[in-house]
Design a protein around this nucleic acid. Structure first.
Length: 663
RNA sequence: GGGGGUGUAGCUCAGCAGGAUAGAGCAUCGGAUUUCUAAUCCGACGGUCGGGGGUUCGAGUCCCUCCACCCCUGCCA
């Protein structure tokens, strides 16, 4: 609705400029006027036009203010300042439209532009997840939700590197340090007294210590890796056992924060179904990669990155940007496998996986996993029109290699539709690191954050953080005596804990490094998830209370109680501007969501949700609704609450944050 | 060396394709509720938008340059 009005204004402006002055202009950006009484949308284009037309901006603005109307949804156009053109919306009409929009449930799958694959999480299946993984999952999940809310068809994939070195390391640990057999490990996995992913976390650190003390042990790793890649023998069986168990635990951890997946793509199938082989043939036959028969990369297949179109002088010749795709020993690098994976994502490989049902979530949603042989009931996977890969920014170089490979193969459209959703890492504040027992130098202590090493077993485990959040939320819930029912306390605390965490990770731009700190992450006041949830609960409480005296009342029916005349009267009365500004803000959800998608920046929706919650809380204090004596005005206030409550609920849903019954 | 990112209030961060008086949260201080629950609201304090040039009617935003910090630039992933 708001977006439609914006487009109409832009279109009309372009047309009027053409008719009046014979000039062709591009659709101008619309701004927010500095204060609400000046108007709702603003154009500064007259300053620009002043030069070409050799007339004062104010004169032009005044002329345009006459020429532009009538325009659907716009009540009037005014001129302010030295030549700003301000548009005043028809408040009553816009509000009625918004009410209808917010009341009707959104329609899924309406965009119809083709499937979008969002790949996120993609944790090495060899140990427990940490906070950095939570950031990845929350960003990816929120982005997928945003796309779905805007009508896109989305498939969420989680790439499982079950044949990589990290799994091999843990295999080495179990075999050579723990002296455990396959069935020992199996028992360990079954044992509910131990947390398997936590013991792998510690074991992984011990393996690195082992390598340091005995560098010759690195041959054990290569041997394990080779066996795992080839997929036969005890080590391969052990790797499969471990990685599958860890994946199940990762899925359980992510489910705690409302993250689910559609498909797990395993590297083992990329290898065993010869996806790489096909991709290799394709790369060779098109000349995208070449064989080096001399030089430092002798015996390797490499790809040259030509990022600079032209103008690159000879001075840069020494450092030609070359990436090795196949090593001199014939094995393929990670990027090579990623190229194969992405060719499959866009259905460019001429091959497909088999799929087997891996898990059914409590809500009934299914997650499938790639397999050598599939089940007939499997859904169609892949075949993406566009793909987003949520991967931390340190891998930007490698992601560019994948994109460049698609280009080199001539798949320019797919390359353009492949997006590296890059986000910054999560470090620890120096205080937090020391709290966890990490030794710091004086230099470290002066830094805004420190990066800790997973190889040393350092870091904050996802489940530990969640447990702490949950404990604190439970304490708060109990102390406030919201409910006596332990089950309900638990549910409420869980929603608050998850809300706090997800909002904490979403509110900042993906481009900033988060210096993790327990105090900030555990905050429930100010700009936090619980603040937003509390705001929703407050709005709902008004309806709940109102229904005690009006059992028939349904918020969705409010538009029957209010005529356009009443709306007009209330929006132009004494408090009209305050009411209108709240309504206008509520109308901007779609704009915020669209912007978040376009810029791959979910924080835009988070910030938006906070703004509207703040505006509502202010409104809540200024206007007491249940004690309002005038029934017409009361109905109107309830109408406003409904609009805001629905808007906030949708925004929270897009962020994967649930609203507690009581707070 | 090359590529990328960041630099805005004491701290953590917004600032949307340049636009009207630089904004939040936290922290500090001071207020508000016999009311739809104070996980709230209002106010105060606090800023040479890293430095310097330039483009423009107008620059935190665009260009150039310098400075600081971080990441990448592996036959690891």
């Amino acid at each position: 609705m708001y977006l439609d009005i914006q487009r109409r204004i832009q279109q009309r402006f372009v047309n009027v400029i053409r008719e009046a002055y014979g000039l062709e202009v591009t659709p101008p950006p619309l701004n927010d006027p500095p204060s609400g009484d000046l108007g709702d949308l603003s154009l500064a284009s007259c300053f620009e036009l002043a030069k070409q037309l050799r007339r004062s901006p104010k004169k032009i603005a005044e002329e345009l203010a006459m020429r532009i109307p009538p325009l659907a949804g716009i009540e009037r156009v005014s001129v302010a300042g030295a030549g700003y053109l301000n548009f005043h919306l028809d408040r009553a009409a816009a509000a009625a439209q918004l009410f209808a929009l917010r009341t009707a449930p959104p329609v899924p799958g309406a965009a119809g532009s083709g499937k979008i694959v969002v790949e996120h999480t993609s944790i090495n299946p060899n140990k427990a997840a940490h906070i950095g993984h939570l950031r990845n999952a929350v960003l990816g999940d929120t982005f997928a939700r945003l796309l779905r809310a805007s009508g896109e068809e989305v498939e969420v994939q989680n790439y499982i590197d079950n044949t990589g070195v990290q799994v091999a390391d843990v295999v080495v640990g179990f075999v050579h340090l723990e002296k455990k057999t396959l069935s020992d490990v199996e028992k360990l996995i079954q044992d509910s007294a131990v947390r398997f992913d936590y013991s792998c976390w510690d074991l992984y650190a011990r393996v690195f210590q082992f390598y340091e003390e005995k560098p010759e042990a690195l041959s054990l790793r290569s041997q394990a890796l080779k066996d795992i890649e080839e997929g036969h023998g005890d080590l391969a069986a052990l790797a499969d056992l471990i990685s599958t168990a860890i994946v199940r635990l990762h899925l359980a951890t992510m489910l705690r924060i409302n993250v689910e997946y559609d498909l797990l793509v395993q590297e083992s199938e990329i290898l065993r179904l010869d996806f790489w082989k096909s991709a290799f043939e394709l790369l060779k036959s098109t000349g995208a990669i070449r064989y080096e028969d001399s030089g430092k990369n002798q015996g390797c297949w490499v790809m040259t990155l030509r990022e600079a179109e032209e103008g690159k002088t000879e001075e840069a010749a020494g450092g030609e940007d070359v990436k090795i795709i196949v090593r001199s020993n014939g094995t393929v690098t990670y990027v090579g496998k990623d190229i194969a994976y992405h060719l499959w994502k866009f259905a460019l490989l001429g091959k497909d996986f088999g799929y087997q049902l891996f898990h059914t979530y409590p809500g009934g949603h299914q997650v499938w996993r790639t397999a050598l042989e599939g089940e007939p009931a499997a859904p169609p996977c892949g075949r993406a029109h566009a793909a987003y890969a949520v991967i931390d920014t340190r891998q930007s170089y490698l992601q560019n290699v994948v994109k460049a490979a698609l280009d080199a193969l001539g798949f320019h459209e797919q390359s353009a539709n492949l997006h590296h959703f890059a986000y910054e890492v999560v470090g620890l504040s120096p205080g937090c690191a020391e709290e966890l027992g990490v030794e710091l130098t004086a230099e470290d202590r002066a830094r805004p954050y420190v990066e800790v090493s997973g190889r040393k077993g350092q870091g904050v485990k996802a489940d530990d953080l969640l447990d702490r959040l949950l404990a604190k939320a439970l304490e708060e819930v109990r102390s406030r005596q919201i409910t006596q029912d332990p089950q309900e306390q638990e549910t409420c605390a869980r929603r608050i804990a998850v809300g706090a965490l997800r909002y904490f990770l979403l509110k900042v731009s993906r481009r900033v490094i988060i210096a993790f700190d327990f105090k900030e992450a555990l905050a429930f006041e100010g700009e936090t998830g619980p603040y937003l949830q509390y705001t929703s609960v407050r709005a709902r409480n008004i309806f709940r209370k109102f229904q005690e005296t009006h059992p028939e009342f349904q918020p969705a029916d409010l538009d029957f109680d209010l005529s356009m005349e009443q709306l007009r009267k209330l929006y132009s009365g004494e408090d009209g501007l305050a009411f209108w500004q709240l309504s206008l803000l509520a109308a901007q959800l779609e704009m915020a969501a669209q912007q978040a998608i376009a810029t791959q920046e979910p924080s835009i929706v988070a910030k938006y949700a906070f703004r509207i919650a703040q505006a509502f809380n202010n409104f809540y204090h200024r206007y007491h609704i249940l004690s309002e004596a005038d029934p017409g005005r009361q109905a109107f206030l309830l109408f406003l609450v409904h609009i805001v409550e629905r808007t906030l609920a949708q925004a929270l849903d897009q962020m994967g944050i649930e609203i507690p019954e009581h707070m």
